[in-house]
């Protein structure tokens, strides 16, 4: 039985090649093999959302993706999204609204929230709540997060209108 698989993929815009353990999920791989500790494990059974990262452009549960399956994949984590500046406005809104307290859910929450900005640029508060309802936050009352996402949606809409 082969328990190590060679993969080459793109992580945060950089090409990386590793031999990974087949029992590693994507978050184990990011944290353990690449030192990208921004994604967190909260349950490791796909419910809490703390491990949410972007795979081939879409948010996924990092704990429900085999690292071994990622040859050729494109992965973006909170570190990459921070460096690229893609969600700078969202991050600033999270800080301004106090939308993170302990911060453990925050990277996953941001990846999900970034998806709303693309998928539903005119989302209502209810739709924002629905979209993030797979990401568990124990500290905030979720309201500050909804406020922050709503702020960014409005700001981006205003920007589009102005352009």
């Amino acid at each position: 039985m082969t328990t190590r698989i060679d993969i080459t993929l793109t992580v945060n815009g950089e090409r990386v090649s590793r031999s990974v353990d087949t029992r590693s999920h994507l978050v184990d791989f990011l944290r353990g093999d690449l030192g990208l500790a921004g994604a967190h494990t909260g349950c490791e059974h796909g419910v809490c959302g703390a491990c949410t990262v972007r795979l081939d452009g879409e948010p996924v549960r990092g704990c429900l993706v085999m690292a071994a399956s990622l040859d050729g994949a494109v992965v973006e984590t909170i570190e990459g999204l921070s460096d690229s500046g893609e969600i700078r406005d969202l991050q600033e809104a999270f800080v301004a609204r106090n939308a993170c307290q302990c911060g453990y859910c925050t990277p996953g929450m941001l990846v999900t929230a970034a998806d709303i900005l693309v998928q539903s640029p005119e989302a209502t508060r209810e739709e924002i709540r629905e979209h993030i309802s797979g990401n568990y936050c124990r500290c905030t009352g979720y309201q500050a997060i909804v406020d922050a996402v709503e702020d960014v949606l409005k700001a981006r809409a205003a920007k589009r209108e102005a352009a």
């Binding site: 990208l36 921004g38 994604a39 967190h40 999270f94 453990y104 925050t106």
Partner: peptide
């Protein structure tokens, strides 16, 4: 006043025990 240590949280640069 926004929390000065919130930026590390939104950029994935916090340091929890498992880190």
């Amino acid at each position: 006043v926004p929390r000065p240590n919130a930026r590390k949280l939104v950029e994935g640069r916090a340091s929890y025990t498992d880190d």
